[in-house]
Design a protein around this nucleic acid. Structure first.
Length: 457
RNA sequence: GGAGAGGUGGCAGAGUGGUCUAUUGCGGCGGUCUUGAAAACCGCUGACGGGAAACCGUCCGGGGGUUCGAAUCCCUCCCUCUCCGCCA
């Protein structure tokens, strides 16, 4: 979420910055809603003040044994008007909150202009890409070895799932252990074990809700207790403003009841900070967690339908940091380096690109993608995405620290990055370490994790 | 899943319809004293929203209700703890 104060004081400037990412900020609508909100709020608070004073007068009069009926008549009028105002304000505030919750973050000044992934800027390369001539695809190699089985997974579940067997299943596990060890031992992260299901409030905090609900697997509660007050609010919203409040309502209900499978460990890990006020000496927080990730990925049908690149379920080792505002840019570079280190240790050629404004994720102010070389595709493919969210997530979560000088709570900055996506790392190893006979060599860094295994296949 | 007890500021913990404008303690900050520190004593110290400010409003797990007035009474949901059941 963006700072509402900034939206009021410099709306044109913010609209221009959001336009860089191709987002059209509906300035007239925002200003109309906010002006109406301000008027309603002022009136409502005035009435509340009158009611509070009236009640005190009644208390005082009764204590003295005086007649209170004239005051009570006055209170009837205030009460009726207050109820009307409060109802309208609640509806309008709900619509305004929803509007604000759907605004993306402002791109960092250092983010290049551009519309889509074609305008991303390559920053550096590491390693020597293996030529594509004669290189087989990871799915072909895995299936030929009998260790990667998409048909079996389709029988069990459906498309976009994988069964791994034997050496590949073992290497997949070894990769996870290896990554966790490097990040905890060399990079100073604390390892976490977290829930793989979260509630709507957590998904709101990191920004997946309300805008990206269709990408999530929602475990619908079998007994969704309908909140009739919220239903009434929806109907009022539609009547008063001629707008569709159904999404707002859905989120409100979901926050009460629903559970979702996590799309990334970012959600449970970052939300540890939700509603917390940290002591500055406990910063930065550096957490690493290995979790499965579940993505429904609606709208991506037709892309990477073959192989393990795009799955509904995959494993990831995720790095998360929370820092002081002034430290987040440096931490972003550092965190990206931690993810790069894994690729280097595994001997996988990669490049680093900075995403252009138009390709940036909604909550991110700056993102570096790490792309691993895949010889079968003769190109680099995303294997990690490292983002600095600034205070965008922190404002949604109320994740704060106490400022040493002012003693007031201030918003933290949050960052995260894959370190790395395990499935895609396995793909990278299969393709880059493939031998002429169809077997897969073992990267030196993994040998300690795969005792007794000389090669796969 | 069943029964019972609970949920109050950073933490602990009072408050059962009207100066609650939430007692008190711990912690934190400032001061006195001291060569310095500790102790002692004094003072300050919750969050959110609106406002240039004065100030106003909201918040006692969430939501709804009763009332002129709710931390307090009622309904409902969530969570925690204890015991029982079940289970890896």
């Amino acid at each position: 979420m963006l700072d509402p104060k900034l939206l009021r004081t410099e709306p044109e400037k913010i609209a221009a910055q959001l336009a860089r990412r191709g987002f059209i900020f509906d300035l007239p609508r925002f200003q109309a809603m906010d002006a109406q909100r301000k008027q309603l709020q002022t009136e409502t608070e005035q009435l509340q003040s009158e009611r509070n004073n009236g009640s005190k007068r009644i208390g005082a009069a009764k204590a003295k044994g005086e007649d209170v009926t004239p005051i009570l008549a006055d209170m009837d009028r205030i009460k009726a008007q207050l109820a009307d105002n409060e109802g309208k304000l609640a509806v309008l505030q709900g619509l305004l909150d929803d509007f604000l919750a759907r605004l993306p973050n402002i791109p960092d000044a250092s983010v290049p202009d551009g519309r889509d992934e074609n305008d991303n800027v390559e920053l550096r390369r590491w390693g020597t890409p293996r030529p594509s001539e004669g290189a087989k695809d990871h799915a072909d190699l895995g299936e030929a070895l009998g260790l990667m089985d998409f048909a079996a997974a389709a029988k069990l579940t459906g498309a976009r799932f994988t069964v791994l067997r034997g050496g590949l299943a073992r290497m997949h596990r070894a990769l996870t252990q290896f990554m966790l060890d490097v990040h905890t031992r060399e990079h100073g992260y604390e390892e976490l074990y977290v829930p793989y299901m979260v509630n709507g409030a957590s998904l709101y905090g990191t920004g997946q809700l309300p805008k990206f609900a269709e990408d999530l697997f929602n475990l619908v509660n079998p007994n969704p207790g309908l909140n009739f007050a919220d239903v009434g609010l929806l109907l009022q919203a539609e009547r008063h403003f001629g707008l569709d409040g159904s999404n707002t309502l859905k989120i409100k209900l979901n926050q009460e009841k629903d559970r979702y499978l996590i799309p990334t460990a970012e959600v449970p890990v970052t939300n540890l900070l939700r509603d917390e006020i940290l002591a500055p000496e406990n910063l930065p927080k550096k957490w690493v967690a290995h979790t499965p990730c579940f993505r429904s990925e609606a709208g991506s049908a037709g892309r990477d339908t073959r192989g393990m690149i795009r799955q509904h379920q995959f494993e990831k080792v995720e790095l998360v940091q929370a820092t002081l505002p002034e430290d987040s840019r440096r931490a972003h570079e550092e965190l990206t380096g931690h993810a790069e280190k894994i690729l280097q240790l595994l001997g996988l050629p990669y490049r680093v690109v900075v995403l252009c404004a138009g390709d940036l994720g909604a909550g991110s102010q700056k993102t570096y993608d790490l792309e691993v070389w895949l010889p079968s595709q003769n190109r680099y493919r995303e294997i990690s995405s490292c983002s600095n969210f600034g205070d965008f997530q922190a404002r949604r979560m109320l994740a704060r620290y106490r400022h040493p000088q002012t003693k007031k709570p201030e918003l933290l900055h949050t960052l995260n990055g894959s370190g790395l996506a395990v499935g895609r790392t396995l793909v990278g190893i299969i393709e880059n370490y493939q031998q002429a006979d169809g077997s897969i060599a073992i990267p030196d860094a993994l040998r300690a994790y795969l005792p007794g295994l000389e090669k796969i296949g």
